[in-house]
Every structure is written in C-alpha cells, then in structure tokens.
C-alpha cells in the first residue's frame, strides 16, 4: 500500500466518482482515500472481501455490516496499519479512533487528548494547552485534569474524539465510536461530530453496526457483506442530520441497507 499526500484524481468513469456528493462550494472534490479491489487474507481466511471505495474530502462514509465481515480490517487498511493482500490503497494520513477508545486510564483527559501533539514533538505545556481547548470545544470544560478512568463512557468517547481530532489529519477513521454510550449521549455526540467535521472540512470513515446511526451521519454508505463491499447511493445532503432521517431518501435507504444486510 502507498500513502500519498497528493493522490491522483480518481480514474474517470468509476462508479465511486459518479457517486461523490456534489457540493457547489468545491466543484472538484479531492480524494483523501481510495481502495481498489483491496482484500486482506490470512491463510485461508478472508479478513476483508474485495472493496472499492473512494473517500472525498469533507464527506462521511459509513461502513455497515455484520460482525466479523471485515469492517475494522478495512479501517486498519485505510490507516496504513495493515497492508492489503491484493488490490491498491492510496490514502492521506488518517487518524484512527479504535473501538473501546484506547485511552490510557491512568492519565488525565488532557494528557490523553494531547498524545498526538506530544508524539509530534510539541512541548508538554503547549500540548496540554491545545488539548484543553479541544476538550472545552467538545463539552468537557473543567474535566481536563481528571483521570479518564474516572470519566463516564460518554465523556471518555469525547476525550478519544478530542485525541483523534488533535492529530490534525484530514481523514478520521472511527471504529464504532458510539457503541458503548446511551442513546441520549449518542445523539449529542452525533451532532458534535458532524459540527466539527463540517467546520474543519475533514472526512470521516465511520464503522458502525447501527444502521440508524449510519443513515443519520453518513453522506454515503458502504454495506460490507461476505461477498463484497457495495456502495449505496448518496443520502440527500441536508443541513441537519435529524432531517436526513425524515427525508424521503432516508427511510428507503434504511430499508435498502437492511435488505442488503439480510441477504
């Protein structure tokens, strides 16, 4: 696999390019990640069926599918943690938010969020100050000094999100980020995520087993089955995620996804 800063534009005529959401502000959406017939096999086992996927700057792609179908593997391939057995991957540097947050329980929310900055070589004081600002922006004002072991599930997800955002990378890879939080918190976090992605024009690939969540958050959906990945048509782009569900496309899309998963 190769990671490039300035990937070649998608090959003309591919179905993904046609499905890219049309945003008037950026007439030629740039591609931040692209998979072409990428597969991962380990011996006889197929960890990832062949997948074609293009992620454009600023869009949210949700990946839905049953357990064990390769959703996490797909994220790891995009993150550059795993090389595909066959096929091609080009991707900008991406920030992974793993399942179950991956926070250091003994460290404070501030130090956890500051980890990417410290790895990038920032002095501790600067990194902490930046982390504190990011935590404030995610609704964790005043909790920066608390150990993450003593935070609630929803608060921990916010810290993990802060850490992911602070990487500064334009593609976020979110592995079931809201699976462990209650429904109300999940709604809040959805709004928060969309607000931040929108404000900074970053793209995200979101793995979820929750079709509802996928339809609500995503510009496009990738339904991953044992056979292959199938890209669903774009959800109509509306200002608020709540509107998407209400939109005509939302309901029928949801039905289509469920039908696809049931096969």
């Amino acid at each position: 696999m190769s990671v490039v800063d300035d990937p070649a534009p998608p090959a003309p005529g591919t179905s993904q390019a046609e499905q890219a959401p049309h945003t008037p502000a950026s007439p030629a959406p740039s591609v931040v990640a692209e998979l072409r017939a990428a597969t991962v096999r380990h011996g006889e086992t197929t960890l990832l069926p062949p997948v074609d996927l293009t992620v454009n700057a600023g869009e949210v792609v949700a990946i839905v599918g049953r357990s064990g179908v390769g959703k996490t593997t797909l994220l790891h391939v995009l993150a550059g943690l795993l090389a595909p057995t066959s096929g091609d991957v080009t991707a900008h540097p991406a920030a992974l938010m793993p399942q179950r947050d991956g926070l250091m329980p003994w460290a404070t929310a501030r130090d956890n969020a500051a980890l990417p900055l410290r790895v990038a070589g920032l002095p501790r004081a600067d990194a902490r100050a930046q982390a504190e600002r990011q935590l404030d922006a995610l609704g964790l004002a005043g909790l920066g000094g608390r150990r993450t072991a003593r935070l609630s599930g929803g608060q921990r997800q916010r810290v993990a999100l802060a850490r992911t955002l602070l990487t500064g990378r334009e593609l976020l890879l979110l592995d079931e980020p809201f699976a462990a939080v209650d429904a109300l918190t999940r709604d809040e976090l959805h709004d928060l995520l969309l607000a931040h992605l929108g404000a900074e024009g970053r793209a995200a690939v979101l793995v979820t087993h929750d079709v509802e969540e996928a339809v609500r958050l995503a510009d496009r959906l990738l339904v991953l089955t044992r056979g292959a990945g199938l890209v669903m048509p774009a959800v109509p782009l509306l200002a608020r995620p709540g509107d998407r569900l209400a939109a005509r496309g939302g309901e029928s899309l949801r039905a289509a996804v469920l039908e696809e998963l049931a096969r």
């Binding site: 943690l81 991406a94 991956g102 250091m104 003994w106 980890l115 790895v119």
Partner: peptide
C-alpha cells in the same frame, strides 16, 4: 492493545512509546 494501535497510527517511535505511555503507566 487499543492504545498500542493508536500509537502505531500516530507513528510514535519506540522511545516515544516508552516515555509517553508505557513507563508512566
């Protein structure tokens, strides 16, 4: 293992991994 994944994704060197995460923990 999740924290280890994050560190790999961030491109942390073994020395950074030890100093920033492993030893404090």
């Amino acid at each position: 293992p999740e924290t280890a994944l994050v560190l790999r994704n961030l491109g942390a060197t073994p020395a950074q991994r030890l100093r920033l995460v492993e030893l404090p923990g």
